[in-house]
Amino acid sequence: MSVNELFKKELKVINMGLESFYEELRSQDVETIHVDWKPAAGGDKKMASLLGRLKGL
């Protein structure tokens, strides 16, 4: 499907990341769901590394 075709349809958006993108779409009455996503360990590299070492154990 081309991008142009997509935008001719009714948009249903799943937003991940910045919540302001979700709020902006909602303000324009676009059906949107915001995924409450955060990077592992809130982006703490040390903790993410420790968790990584435990994967699969």
Binding site: D44, M47, L50, L51, R53, L54, L57
Partner: peptide
């Protein structure tokens, strides 16, 4: 929880489990 996680990894390291 972060302190406990660090201690847990240290424990496994000391036991040669990692």
């Amino acid at each position: 929880f972060t302190d406990a996680l660090e201690a847990y990894v240290e424990l496994l390291e000391s036991e040669g489990m990692l």
